[in-house]
Design a protein around this nucleic acid. Structure first.
Lengths: 236, 236
DNA sequence: GGTCAAGGTTTTATCGATTATTTTTCTTTC
DNA sequence: GAAAGAAAAATAATCGATAAAACCTTGACC
């Protein structure tokens, strides 16, 4: 039968020491966030078995985990599917993220110690040196290494916040919004001066200038949103 | 995670029509929140099989779902256990809840329509009529019906907020904090005028007096916290 | 021409058994 | 007597097979 070939992104935790459940979870998650598994697409356990080469139990467990992350929907007795996307949900996620991250960032700036600052500087340095895109057979596309470091950068900004719970929520929102970014991406990312934006945010944070940092961060997110909303509206 | 809808849930979802996974999930969740399964306790699949009378697969899936709810911890290759409790986590959850709910409540008050208001009145009425405790063989203990309606009351306050995501976070925090309340409860709940507190909050909300409503709500939560922190500190 | 239902097909959900891993216990050695 | 190592027991993880449910036909009937 014509099982659609899903593209599995490279560079995931293939750590053979982890349980197959966790391995399957990582792979599926990466595939969904990168858009390789399209929104709304049904996730049949049998097909996924072929894809990941693992039994049904780990697959189902991984899907259950993803359900709670908001990346997969469970239709009781009718299987799983990749969560749908909508402009409404996107706006909701975006606004909620801005709300939560402003708070976390202010806390982080107040509480951050030297170790936190050092780490942030390191991450910024690494991010700056990574190319935004890579070229392969398919043409130009987003660089997965950059994606990883980019998320790490944003989480590092907040990392000194004392609230683990808040950070977890922010983490989840990042993943869900990154999926929107991937899904709405039309080929290569447009020209944008990421480096300056990130540097400016990072600098304000290190200067402990909370108001400026928050303002720059929200601007940063809003800029992405402006671009994405149009593409998303068209998709619908 | 199955998003808890705000429909008034009828009794218990022991619905035989649901998948065993969901049934197991509901049961385990209730047991953990009520404290019947103690914090830190190991959850061996074999034992749970006997308890819930179901195969290993649904159990493992249910545990995976609970993991993302923060009620169960997964130790890779070493099974599952009920999440531990700590004063630090409690404070974090409490503060985060206050932060999120203040925001959601203000939005809800601004956006709430007639249907929302009607519903809130109904829930308040039902909550008022439920006894806080019940007596059974074990003695006096919290009334599960009351618990359910109490949560419904609090979620109904926020229900008109336009942010589904925020409401989901609040929902999760409620469950996790309710577990702390159960765990720290020493026998019968102490004397406290719940009815007046709830009525005052509800009234302020219906009057669309946001500042007063927020103030009363936070006071309400802080009062619980004061009581619990002491018991928790002792437990440790 | 459309609707409904019986039967067949696909897919999900579930189980019992098997394999792999961790933990415990028991030796052995220094 | 403590530490290290090996064997045994416990239990977690996984698989293949089966049962159950949802979904597609297809064809009879109005």
């Amino acid at each position: 039968m014509p099982v659609q070939e899903f593209e599995v992104p490279e560079a995931f935790d293939d750590d053979a020491t982890q349980s197959l459940t966790i391995q399957a979870y990582s792979k599926l998650r990466a595939s969904i966030i990168s858009g390789a598994l399209a929104p709304g697409q049904r996730l049949k356990v049998e097909s996924l078995r072929d894809l990941i080469e693992v039994g049904a139990t780990p697959i189902r467990e991984a899907l259950s985990l993803l359900t709670s992350d908001g990346l997969v929907e469970r239709l009781d007795k009718r299987g799983f599917r990749v969560s749908g996307v909508s402009l409404e949900e996107y706006d909701d996620l975006h606004r909620t993220r801005c709300f939560l991250e402003e708070h976390a960032l202010r806390e982080s700036i107040v509480r951050g110690d030297q170790a936190w600052e050092d780490r942030l500087v390191l991450v910024m340095h690494r991010l700056r040196r990574l190319p935004r895109t890579v070229n392969d057979a398919e043409g130009t596309r987003s660089n997965p290494e950059w994606e990883r470091m980019h998320k790490l950068f944003h989480m590092s900004l907040l990392a000194a916040s004392p609230s683990r719970t808040l950070l977890q929520f922010c983490d989840q929102l990042h993943d869900r919004l990154n999926r929107y970014r991937s899904v709405a991406a039309t080929g290569a990312p447009g020209p944008r001066d990421w480096k300056s934006e990130h540097d400016a945010i990072g600098e304000a944070v290190i200067d402990r200038n909370a108001d400026l940092a928050v303002s720059l961060l929200l601007q940063h997110y809003n800029k992405t949103t402006e671009i994405l909303r149009q593409t998303l509206a068209a998709l619908k």
